[in-house]
């Protein structure tokens, strides 16, 4: 039979093994064990940087932050620098990036070989909406007047936007397409981002602007411009008299969203952790206050839903960019 000492040793061994297993279980629960790098695909002060700050602030104030963030800015390359950075961090659970739909657009345009399938979409967080704005003294009273003119002659109205390709641009193309306009021919002029496009509208150099709602609303409230339509799925509280596209009988809603992306092959524990964490964060008071301040809207989607939306968006963009002749060759 086994000696007493041996039996004692066996018990101790078993106990140790149990403790080890238990601790390992704990370790898996305990992601993150070190600080997480948050990488906005923009420079300090820009829209994506604001998201990083708002996330950090909400999680800190609401005492939900398990490990501190380090913030690294990867502005530039139209968001491509972030995408390549994430691709190089394959399998790393301690890096998350913040970017917009440029991840899709850049691949379609051929400025980068990686698309949204080459990184891990984690969650969609916020959205802005786009709108059509005209000067207060414009002859156009509704967006339908403009679309009617475009249908007769697609070059009859010139639009100003902040940049291309962008949701500002799709906010022109999609309604035009629905109304049977030859939308590939519509004249769209890009001005420098920021206030430049608005200055050109106020100065009467372009008749219509397709721009961010938050940029137009302060001008509208001061009586300088009129907003003809907004790309939201329903009317917005701040502008109850402005119709959305659906109110005008056009089945279009455009989300100028921002989301979180992880590196390819992001560990499941990290992916699950951030899905839960952000789902809880978007319900907090601090987060909602930040959204209000920056005229942002909640557009939370879990990773799985986000991925499905991205696949849908990708097909829409492919078609629109194709019609504009902006698609990379061989992508049709």
């Amino acid at each position: 039979m086994l000696s007493k000492t041996f039996r004692v040793a066996l018990v101790i061994l078993a106990a140790t093994a149990l403790v080890m297993i238990a601790r390992q279980g704990n370790a898996q629960q305990a992601y993150p064990t070190k600080s997480v790098q948050m990488v906005p695909a923009g420079s300090p002060g820009g829209g994506l940087d604001i998201h990083a700050r708002a996330i950090e602030q909400a999680l800190t104030v609401e005492k939900m932050l398990d490990k501190p963030f380090t913030v690294l800015h990867k502005g530039g390359g139209g968001g491509n620098l972030l995408t390549s950075y994430l691709v190089n961090q394959k399998g790393n659970g301690y890096v998350i990036g913040i970017n917009s739909n440029r991840v899709l657009l850049n691949e379609l345009m051929g400025t980068i070989e990686y698309g949204f399938m080459d990184v891990t979409p984690v969650v969609r967080l916020t959205t802005e909406y786009n709108c059509w704005a005209v000067r207060a003294d414009s002859k156009y009273k509704t967006a339908l007047d403009i679309l009617a003119d475009l249908k007769k002659d697609p070059t009859s109205v010139t639009f100003g936007v902040g940049t291309v390709p962008s949701n500002d641009q799709f906010n022109i193309l999609l309604p035009s397409k629905q109304k049977g306009v030859d939308y590939g021919k519509v004249k769209i002029v890009a001005f420098d981002a920021g206030g430049d496009a608005m200055a050109k509208l106020l100065g009467g150099h372009v008749p219509v602007l397709s721009t961010g709602f938050s940029e137009a609303i302060t001008q509208a409230e001061a009586g300088k411009v009129r907003i003809l339509s907004v790309s939201a799925p329903s009317k917005l509280d701040r502008a109850p008299n402005v119709p959305c596209w659906k109110d005008l009988g056009i089945d279009v809603a455009i989300y100028h969203w921002r989301g979180i992306y992880g590196p390819p092959d992001m560990p499941k524990e990290a992916y699950d952790y951030w899905n839960k964490k952000f789902a809880a964060m978007v319900k907090t008071k601090t987060w909602k206050e930040s959204l209000d301040k920056f005229e942002l809207f909640d557009a939370f989607l879990t990773g799985d839903e986000f991925k499905k939306e991205l696949a849908k968006d990708n097909e829409t963009y492919r078609e629109l960019l194709g019609a504009m002749g902006m698609l990379k060759k061989g992508k049709k």
Binding site: I50, G195, Q219
Partner: peptide, 25 residues
């Protein structure tokens, strides 16, 4: 007018927004 153009004034606009000042005309 609430319209920024150079780099620094664009950042200042963000700062004003952050304080909830609704920069505009």
């Amino acid at each position: 007018l609430g319209i920024p153009h150079s780099g620094t004034t664009a950042v200042l606009l963000t700062v004003l927004t952050m304080y909830g000042l609704k920069p505009g005309p």
